[in-house]
Design a binder for these strands. Structure first.
Lengths: 122, 122
DNA sequence: GTAACCCTAACACGGTCGTGTCAAGGTTCC
DNA sequence: GGAACCTTGACACGACCGTGTTAGGGTTAC
């Protein structure tokens, strides 16, 4: 009886039931089902949901990105292609000035924060 | 004089000038600038743009995903956290039935194709 | 000096991500 | 047998991704 239904699992992991279904759809935590098709979260899945949550919050990552990391890990061809492209840095060091490529991610973050403070003020 | 301006570089790499600026913003191919601020694409950048294009097409990946792969490569903390989460598979093999987690990506693809054929018909 | 090019900033638009909510219908439990 | 739960499917919504386009203003080259 140590298997929780979706609402119970949500309550003990900090996700919403909606998001638990979404996480399943993304292939990240897929619980087994009862005969009637109910999701049954065991201790393993619950732990996995909690650590996933930590991972996303701590490193500002999205589910899609973790999914992509998983895809790279499973698909050797993809992994090699990406790795090779990334390691083929320019012969002359004319390309990336350090601190430049951070702008992209930072801008996203700033826009997000700006949007949030708008909400708070309201 | 073996450095091309943004329009010329676009013509020889298959990107649009707009996208060349976007790719730069994503930190993937950042050309040096002339005194006046013009982007100057050398042979190295041009090659990199062509191979990037191949990579994206061949593996159905987006710029944001390559950017994320780069981020994982630079940020050891992130890389370790993601890798650890992904390798911490369930003790009992009750979690992912093979072929299940493919649905997510496939669905995306199908919806995309459906949308595209709508356009063609029109 | 002027045509042709470059720059950034911005609007626009369909698609995806993350999330909530609601509807129509099965299941479980008293 | 009805309340309280579960299922899938859909609409909604703001933010982001990929992309084109346009506007206002410098630069280059003839």
């Amino acid at each position: 009886m140590d298997a929780l239904t979706v609402n119970e699992a949500a309550a003990t992991t900090g996700w919403s039931p909606r998001m638990l279904r979404y996480v399943e759809r993304a292939g990240l935590v897929v619980p087994p089902r009862s005969d009637a098709g109910y999701r049954l979260y065991g201790p393993g899945q619950l732990q996995r949901l909690r650590t996933l949550r930590e991972l996303l919050e701590r490193h500002d990552v999205g589910l899609a990105e973790v999914s992509f990391a998983r895809r790279m890990r499973e698909d050797a061809g993809l992994r090699e292609a990406v790795d090779e492209w990334l390691s083929a840095r320019p012969r002359r060091p004319d390309e990336v000035s350090p601190g430049e490529w951070l702008r992209f991610e930072q801008d996203k973050h700033e826009r997000l924060l700006a949007a949030q403070s708008q909400l708070e003020v309201r």
